[in-house]
Design a protein around this nucleic acid. Structure first.
Length: 820
RNA sequence: GCGGAUAUGGCGGAAUUGGCAGACGCGCAUGAUUCAGGUUCAUGUGAGGCGACUCGUGCAGGUUCAAGUCCUGUUAUCCGCACCA
């Protein structure tokens, strides 16, 4: 507390009788009362309609809460609180997504077990969240690192394995040549190891994969029925990236078939070379025919050093090598085309090989220009293709293309594919950008994968009765040598017997990625203490789906897609009752530092929530978080802006002196109150929190202009404000004799009639310029509005001597008179 | 390079469907209250002009009686990325 306003006893001319607003005392009082009475506990099996509001559970980092966290939490707290006031049985839960790399690295560095680190971080986070007064149901808290929780994460994995959706495949990992360990993408900075600075190369390792691609089409189709914000749907669709095209067979001089994928089959006559990715299996096979093998091998080695991320980042300048002594035959005209390898072609997409049509593809064009390859125009309509690529598919006519000549691109694509199919030279093919999910991590702090490897039986699931398979106790958490998991060193744990044949077997030492636990946590909240199932059938039936899920834009592709995939799988095997986990999904913008840059320790612009709450209180903090700007946009923090919100909270507190005993609304303020109820309610629903608060500020300003306000007016104001500033409003409710908890009191209603004014101001324009404003009766029709405008003296003098060409009257808005 | 967004006073931002640009807050100015002020209250505050007025939503065009909003082009910034053929 302290010096802010200490000693003040006057408020302008008006003396303030009420004592100074003591937020620290009042906030603590209500937080304790709410928890003691279980005000925010959701009830399973209630007759009330349910409402499930969800926020992305935090990763309890050592840095503690960031001012960005409470933005989304407050937003959905407002919705959860409003729903309770509207009579819903609300579930608004919280938990900890606690497995992960930072904890593990901290544990390695400080020789503390990650379990302890996690416990400390969770405690700190919990205390920080609790001081902000969120209406979480703390009795349902979950933690992904709790064996009772990850038992079910492992159980879901076993089901995926059982249904053939988990498989092993060789995949590249980042390999630090200095530390001799595998690294995550995050630990690779500019191609070198973040810790030791050594070169990082790609090393192949057998990894567990999940077949998310099998769900690609459904993950696109089922978006149609969901209330996600449009840009999230767009990003999901683009990430999955469905494309319709064709696979075309090119015969090589070696006799091998090279299959390429193209979405522009119409341009086949314009292909002037073909390109394989450096990893394409045919490259090795062609070795005997390749005259310049040394150059080729060299290029392949260079490409192997780069991660895919780097390849794309450094892709401005195209590189490649021709396979000398090899050529490909264009199936449509027999032309002999040179064969190249280049890392702009990815082995992971399509067939790992393309036909290059430089005239009509920007990347091919650049490559052709650099290496002096021919450019043949087959779609007319652009400029000279030697000077500029022409890739417009909406216009253009096929030329130099035999039977396609004269067709549009739209006609030519299916015509060419039909022809290829008839000749047996190609076929229609749908491709997705989406790739299968690499599910293995060579790390300690994750869920153990509950499989064993038996020389006789192969990979075998452990029996469900042995779940959870707990992490072995270890003292060293460093990654193992040769890119192995730290668990490879836990020899006692690894060696076991095969559940199938009883022979000797070894446990899988890789663990699951952090995404695993967060792919289903919202289900556990429905029935968090169930030891027989991830949640009971009844609980799943009652609470599914999540009604409103809010989180960061950075999770709109990976986490959101992974959890939708798992949910669809669980639906398929009859575990959950809905096809989709979340009905509505929204995203909030980032909160930046005062200097408009991302908040970070190194930039020194971090705002500590504890300090904010100590100085201004949770209510002012919450109010500012919502008032700071448009919810879905990133916006800089401002200490001054925060002070403005603190002032608003205090102004509401000081209104106490002005409140009379009268119930109901006074004639002077009635319309204003009704309008505000409508505006605030609607704005909360649309996540326009900043304008909702602005409307309440305006109402408070009007209250101050009045001599006094009725108790009815005051109680309505604090009810509207309660979801944003729950502590102070709850205190005021009690002081003025409100019944029970304000947090559970009914949401105010308004009379639509009373939100309309009797008289409104309209604007009179002449040739689009404002010339006059006037008050007219509300509800006046077009003719009446026009007549009223014509009465204006200003208008009369302005149009005097001119010809009125046209008059546009918009009832309730304006009249525009066009004169000549 | 691809995908997604954003651009409005000194600052954060507002403006259902095209219809008074700048609500609300900050900051600033003036005045009042106060022993005092990092307090509170009141009034004012886009720019230019004495003024009637004129100009003004990244930039350049266009559509319209009317454009921050719609269309075409363009620039800058931010986020994501797997050069997606």
């Amino acid at each position: 507390m302290g010096r802010r306003g200490a000693g003040r006893n006057k408020c302008g001319g008006r003396e303030i009788k009420v004592e100074k607003y003591n937020f620290s005392e009042i906030e603590k009082k209500w937080q304790e009362k709410w928890e003691k009475d279980g005000c925010f506990h959701a009830v399973n099996g209630s007759d009330k309609p349910k409402y499930y509001a969800l926020i992305e559970f935090p990763y309890p980092s050592g840095q503690g809460l960031h001012v960005g966290h409470p933005r989304g939490y407050t937003a959905l707290d407002i919705i959860a609180r409003k729903r309770r006031m509207e009579g819903y049985n609300v579930l608004y839960p919280i938990g900890w997504d606690a497995f992960g790399l930072p904890t593990e690295n901290y544990a390695i560095k400080n020789k503390i077990h990650p379990k302890i680190v996690t416990k400390n971080n969770v405690e700190h986070f919990k205390q920080q969240l609790q001081m902000l007064g969120f209406s979480f149901d703390w009795s349902r808290e979950v933690n992904t690192t709790d064996p009772e929780y990850y038992k079910w994460t492992q159980w879901i994995f076993l089901k995926l394995f059982e249904k053939g959706l988990a498989y092993k495949q060789e995949m590249p990992i980042n390999w630090c040549t200095g530390c001799k360990v595998g690294l995550s993408n995050e630990e690779v900075v500019n191609g070198v190891c973040e810790r030791c600075g050594s070169e990082v190369v790609q090393k192949r390792k057998s990894q567990w994969m999940l077949k998310i691609t099998e769900y690609a089409q459904r993950l696109i189709d089922d978006l149609d029925d969901l209330a996600y914000i449009e840009k999230v749907k767009t990003q999901q669709r683009n990430w999955i990236g469905r494309s319709e095209g064709a696979e075309v067979k090119f015969e090589l001089s070696s006799g091998d078939d090279l299959i390429v994928y193209t979405t522009r089959a119409d341009t086949l006559f314009g292909a002037t070379y073909v390109v394989m990715s450096p990893e394409h299996e045919l490259v090795q096979k062609l070795k005997p025919q390749i005259a310049n093998w040394d150059d080729v091998a060299d290029y392949m080695a260079q490409a192997a050093k780069k991660s895919e991320f780097e390849r794309t980042e450094l892709a401005k300048d195209k590189t490649g090598v021709q396979l000398e002594g090899v050529y490909a035959v264009n199936p449509v005209n027999g032309a002999k085309l040179p064969v190249w390898i280049s890392d702009y072609v990815l082995v992971t997409y399509g067939t790992g090989a393309i036909m290059a049509v430089p005239a009509h593809d920007g990347r091919d064009w650049e490559f052709a220009k650099k290496f002096g390859l021919p450019i043949i125009e087959v779609v007319a309509g652009g400029k000279n293709v030697q000077e500029e690529v022409y890739a417009d598919v909406a216009q253009g006519t096929l030329v130099n293309s035999g039977f396609l000549d004269g067709m549009s691109v739209k006609e030519a694509i299916p015509a060419m594919i039909d022809w290829l199919e008839k000749q047996g030279l190609g076929k229609r093919k749908v491709n997705f950008k989406l790739r299968d999910w690499v599910f293995s991590r060579q790390r300690y702090w994750g869920e153990p994968i509950p499989l064993v490897h038996c020389d006789k039986c192969g990979w075998v699931a452990i029996p469900e009765s042995e779940l959870p398979l707990e992490l072995p106790e270890m003292k060293e958490f460093e990654p193992g040598e040769n890119g192995e998991s730290p668990l490879a060193k836990a020899h006692d744990w690894i060696n076991t017997t095969c559940p199938h044949c009883g022979g000797p077997a070894q446990r899988e030492t890789d663990t699951m990625p952090q995404w695993a636990g967060s792919s289903w946590y919202f289900l556990r909240y429905m029935d968090p203490h169930n030891s027989d199932a991830l949640a009971s059938k009844e609980a799943l039936e009652y609470w599914s789906p999540v009604d409103w899920y809010n989180g960061g834009m950075e999770h709109t592709t990976l986490h959101l897609l992974y959890s939708r995939f798992w949910h669809k799988f669980l639906y398929d095997i009859g575990v959950v009752p809905t096809k989709e986990p979340y009905f509505k999904r929204t995203s909030h913008g980032m909160i930046l530092g005062e200097n408009n840059e991302k908040m970070s320790k190194s930039r020194g612009n971090v705002v500590n929530p504890d300090e904010v709450v100590n100085e201004f209180g949770a209510d002012a903090f919450r109010t500012y978080e919502m008032f700071i700007g448009a919810f879905d946009q990133s916006t800089p923090w401002s200490q001054q802006g925060l002070r403005g919100c603190y002032k608003f909270i205090e102004r509401v507190w000081n209104l106490q002196d002005m409140v009379t005993n009268e119930e109901g609304y006074s004639e002077a303020l009635e319309k204003n109150v009704h309008k505000t109820i409508k505006k605030v309610g609607e704005d909360y629903e649309r996540m326009k929190y900043n304008t909702a608060i602005a409307a309440m500020m305006s109402l408070v300003n009007d209250f101050y202009k009045a001599e006094s306000i009725t108790k009815g007016e005051f109680m309505t104001l604090i009810t509207l404000l309660n979801p944003v500033a729950p502590h102070m409003t709850e205190e005021l409710w009690e002081r003025f004799g409100g019944e029970g908890y304000l947090s559970l009191a009914p949401w105010p209603s308004y009379d639509e009639e009373k939100t309309h004014d009797d008289e409104i101001e309209i604007v009179v324009q002449i040739n689009g310029k404002i010339r006059d404003k006037m008050m007219i009766a509300a509800g006046l029709d077009k003719d009446g509005t026009e007549k009223a405008a014509m009465q204006s003296e200003k208008v009369k003098s302005e149009i005097n001597g001119k010809t009125v060409v046209k008059v546009i009257a918009v009832p309730g808005k304006l009249v525009n008179i066009v004169v000549k």
